[in-house]
Amino acid sequence: MISALIKWMQRYEGWVGAGGGLCILAGLYLGLVASPPDYYQGEVVRIMYVHVPLVQTGMLAYSTLFIGSLWYLWKRDPIVDNLCHAAAGISAFFTALGLITGSIWAKPTWNTWWTWDARLVSFAVMFLILVGYLMLRTFVDDPEREARYAAVLAIVGFVDLPIVHFSVEWWRTLHQPLSFSMRGVSMSKPMLIPLGIMTVGFSLTFFYMLMVRTQMLYLDHLLTAKKGRLLSQAHLSSDVGSSPSSLSTP
């Protein structure tokens, strides 16, 4: 019994992954070779083509986790829980990479590895929440309860992030203003295009990873259920006195 969502993922995951790979290759060429160096930052600016998409993908993954968690609490579908679990791991991965590349970019431009800036702190907090989420999941024995707790934590954490952001913004901030805002885009075209392509590429890669990881967790779930059934059968048959070797020949 394989769910429709898993079938859909199996059909499209190859296309999504290939699209993501192609976009990243094209974006890397445009960003690292074809685009001009920045007027102020010189060649250093090229790390932007990796850093910004990583961070945006981390946020996309957490948003997916948030929506998935709401969906899970509403429908209680175990596959949605597998999807959330997958999204959380990938989000933690992208957020960690985003923090590391941001730190590398901050050293030459701000002359410091780390500063207590609003976006840095919100991302660090987001990373800690995601790590707490993944730890929480390993500590709960009952899968249904694990899914519920994790969903509640993801939702509470998601609501917390804007408050963290504003509180640190009032506290102290150094980050350059957002390049994309309601007032328009403050970036030249030869830099914008590779950035956009890289962002699309990383997002597609995220969806590819999400599909693969969800399937893995789903199969793991099925396997655990199957193992539980076999074990209880073995116990039952040994209780009535027949040979317990039924485990080896299911």
């Binding site: 907090v125 730890m135 929480l136 309860r145 707790y149 917390d160 408050i163 504003f166 640190v168």
Partner: peptide, 27 residues
């Protein structure tokens, strides 16, 4: 209420609570 029903509860309560309480602490 969440961590009392899981393993390693003494560890998990501060790990979950303190990151979320960052705005409270700053303010």
């Amino acid at each position: 209420a969440m961590t009392v029903q899981i393993r390693a509860r003494e560890v998990m309560l501060p790990i979950l609570l303190l990151p979320l309480a960052v705005p409270v602490m700053i303010a």
